[in-house]
């Protein structure tokens, strides 16, 4: 499944300062759909190159990281259970920084 994953607010520093990633993520074996929980795991092992604890806490994002799926807060779409579809755009913005 092709997705666009964007990092902002400093999170891009965890993946070699690249903000926008066009990625192709496969479904988990035996699963029909891809949900955010799977995507987070995939990002953690494929995109994040350093300090994964700045991005994730437990099996979800660190509190203070804003997550948008197609420009909508993932709180409205079911957070970890949000089902992803082809060409979806997922944005992560960290609030944990100076300002």
């Amino acid at each position: 499944m092709r997705l666009t994953v964007e990092f902002g607010g400093g999170l891009e520093l965890l993946c070699q300062s690249i903000k926008i990633h066009h990625v192709d993520v496969n479904h988990k074996a035996g699963e029909e759909k891809l949900i955010m929980k799977d995507l987070l795991c995939w990002i953690r092992s494929n995109l994040i190159k350093e300090r994964p604890e700045m991005f994730m806490k437990g099996d979800t994002v660190r509190p203070g990281v804003l997550v948008l799926v197609n420009d909508t807060d993932w709180e409205l779409s079911g957070q970890l259970d949000t089902t992803l579809e082809e060409n979806d755009v997922v944005v992560f913005i960290s609030t944990l920084h100076g300002g």
Binding site: G8, G9, G10, L66, V91, H97, G98, G99
Partner: peptide, 14 residues
């Protein structure tokens, strides 16, 4: 952040 959401200039070590 929601208001701003476009782009965020950030202080990496803070």
């Amino acid at each position: 952040l929601d208001y701003f959401s476009t782009e965020c200039i950030y202080s990496p070590n803070a």
